[in-house]
Design a protein around this nucleic acid. Structure first.
Length: 192
DNA sequence: TAGGCCATCTGGTCCT
DNA sequence: AGGACCAGATGGCCTA
């Protein structure tokens, strides 16, 4: 089963479980006593906090559920943004969905690579392209998900993560992006 | 089985 | 007052 599919299944299951918490089903936590996914744990202590307040427990419970709903929505938005970010990063094998942290680090290093490409093109307009196109000249140093600071100060081979090495980046792509962007093309992952 | 990743809940804090 | 944001906690699923 692919990573993507697995996550979708997991999300669906989570959503199913969530229904047992849904006010729409008139089954508050208090009644169900939790499910197989007792997030937050320590029931019924949490129920007590959620619904057992001295000041109108029912109202408090409604507020809490609304807040949970907003938080869920906020996190979904955040994940959507991360997905969008993944989609504009260079192509990866279909199954190799980057984790959140990998996506952020990869994006930062990718931006660094693009910036570097621009600098080289500015200072060595005639040689930049050929240099950058040679595999390993620049790509191996920053294509990984090592921490950002290392990107700017120089990354050692040891700092390249194993996960990244398995990605096997194409021979240097950023120059292609740069050239395409010069022509006003909207470069996306699918256009590689 | 341990560890990584994830979704969710929760209470606190800040802002409008 | 209510919403947004955040970090900690928790439990499920998956892989090595």
């Amino acid at each position: 089963m692919s990573y993507k599919l697995r996550n979708e299944v997991r999300t669906l299951r989570a959503a199913e479980t969530l229904c047992s918490f849904s006010p729409a089903l008139s089954k508050p936590l208090q009644e169900t006593g939790g499910t197989s996914r007792d997030t937050g744990g320590n029931l019924p202590g949490r129920q007590q906090r959620m619904f057992g307040r001295k000041t109108s427990g029912e109202q408090c419970g409604r507020r809490r559920m609304k807040a949970n709903d907003r938080e869920r929505h906020r996190m979904h938005n955040l994940n959507s943004a991360l997905d969008a970010l993944r989609n504009i990063l260079p192509a990866l094998p279909e199954d190799a969905k980057l984790t959140k942290i990998e996506t952020l680090r990869f994006a930062r290093n990718y931006i660094w690579a693009l910036t570097e490409t621009l600098h080289m093109a500015d200072h060595h307009p005639h040689t930049a392209a050929s240099e950058l196109r040679s595999p390993g000249s620049v790509s191996s140093l920053e294509w990984d998900s090592a921490s950002p600071a290392e990107s700017w100060s120089g990354t050692t081979a040891d700092e390249v993560s194993c996960r990244t090495l398995t990605i096997d980046p194409p021979s240097f792509i950023p120059i292609t992006i740069y050239l395409r962007s010069l022509h006003g093309e909207n470069v996306t992952r699918n256009s590689w």
